[in-house]
Design a protein around this nucleic acid. Structure first.
Lengths: 238, 238
DNA sequence: ATAATAATAGTGGTTGAACCACTGAACCAC
DNA sequence: GTGGTTCAGTGGTTCAACCACTATTATTAT
């Protein structure tokens, strides 16, 4: 493989390789916020790829909020800690081999704040046909992970807050990738089934406060179990 | 929109025009989820632009979660309601001339849930040097809008939850563009100054519960004033 | 006839060279 | 100083061609 100053390329399409390469450099602070990147022509020459390919990669990095491209001036690195968006946050999770504990904590904490509130609101907005949909989810979905994700998505949709749907989708993307580990444990599977049943009853009875506490409790249980698992698995590395 | 002396200029690269054009078609359901878009070549020919330009636009739409590009197959429209991200949500605000009331409600509601919790957490995490930074923000920032944004950013940073920083940045992007209207009102300016002072005291005294209630109260005030303004301004259109 | 295989058409991915449009700096004229 | 002019460097766009992947169709072997 060709040696160059920016690093090596390996993965899928050339463009995605460039995205990953530059994103890593920025997130790992190899390139500092405010720094100016080499020109598109220089990057292309350095990586030995075409300028159009580099431009597509840069366009993605710009949409992720990692860089700012100024016509006639150049390409500048943003401070992703203050200018990033959730898609970037998600990317950071997958950039490393293991999900950093700090990020996991952040996600679980935010989830614990938002989801119970939204469950309470969903109860208030829940119509008869919504409740029927809830029944279908609980009874017809075999896979426990998919069922749990569907329940959360139902909460999001029924809350009638589009912003919540988007944020929840972000949560679900993460838990779809890591949740299968969680549900390998029979206790956890049982706890989730219990949650679904309890929550359904709260929706049936229109008890918003009940839905709130039920949801908060299961998320606290989940958080505890995930931390246990995490510290057990990686304790030797820390 | 953004305020400046002479008025609002719209920047317009060909690529961004294409992004806006296609995004509107998708969000307004002129193109349905699951639909296949014309090929890159056909789109380029249809719009009378080069294929490379179209590709850059498509790359952005893909990063926004609006479409999925499959090598050898084609371009497919996603269901943005379940696959979108916050950057897309933000774009939806600016696609129309006026920010839809429903979206405004969603944002304000979510803000009311998240920010007080984070303020409480920030108090607990707040160090002496953090408090000094808070002092600087309150005393040295002249512009009330910038000061308010800085206070919120301080809360986010001090809470030590990176996910919150990202979500708050999303809020701030919106309020930076619309907040000047809000602060034209002297009552609102005064209310915010009061909030900053009260919150600083809560941080000083390490009163997390106090910070929570103070923040919740000001957000409720803000929400009310914004709705008043909105319904007053657009009442004839509805 | 059927199943495996090969050719084909259509799609996105990449390339190279060229030119346009914008920015900042240096220089010039007033 | 102030305002133009030029120039070099940057991103934005174009064109024409080819590569790589996918699904379909035609062909072949059984």
């Amino acid at each position: 493989m060709k040696k160059n100053t920016l690093g090596h390329l390996q993965k899928n399409t050339l463009r995605e390789q460039i995205v990953t390469l530059l994103a890593k450099k920025i997130i790992n602070n190899a390139i500092q916020p405010g720094d100016k990147l080499p020109s598109e022509r220089d990057i292309a020459a350095d990586l030995d790829v075409n300028r159009a390919t580099v431009r597509e990669a840069l366009k993605k990095l710009e949409t992720l909020g990692l860089i700012e491209i100024r016509h006639g001036e150049g390409i500048f690195v943003n401070d992703y800690r203050s200018s990033g968006n959730l898609e970037l946050f998600r990317m950071m999770i997958y950039l490393n081999d293991t999900i950093p504990l700090s990020i996991l904590q952040d996600v679980l904490e935010m989830r614990k704040i938002i989801v119970p509130e939204m469950a309470a609101r969903a109860v208030q907005e829940c119509s008869v046909s919504d409740l029927e949909e809830f029944t279908l989810i609980i009874n017809e979905q075999e896979d426990i992970l998919e069922k749990d994700l569907a329940v959360h998505h139902f909460i999001a949709k029924t809350s009638n807050n589009m912003l919540y749907i988007f944020i929840l989708h972000f949560f679900n993307q993460i838990f779809r990738d890591f949740g299968y580990l969680y549900f390998e444990n029979p206790d956890n599977r049982k706890r989730s089934e219990q949650f679904h049943q309890q929550l359904y009853k709260a929706f049936q009875d229109k008890k918003a406060e009940k839905a709130f506490s039920i949801t908060r409790d299961v998320l606290e249980y989940t958080e505890k179990r995930i931390f246990d698992y995490y510290t057990k698995t990686y304790s030797n590395k820390r």
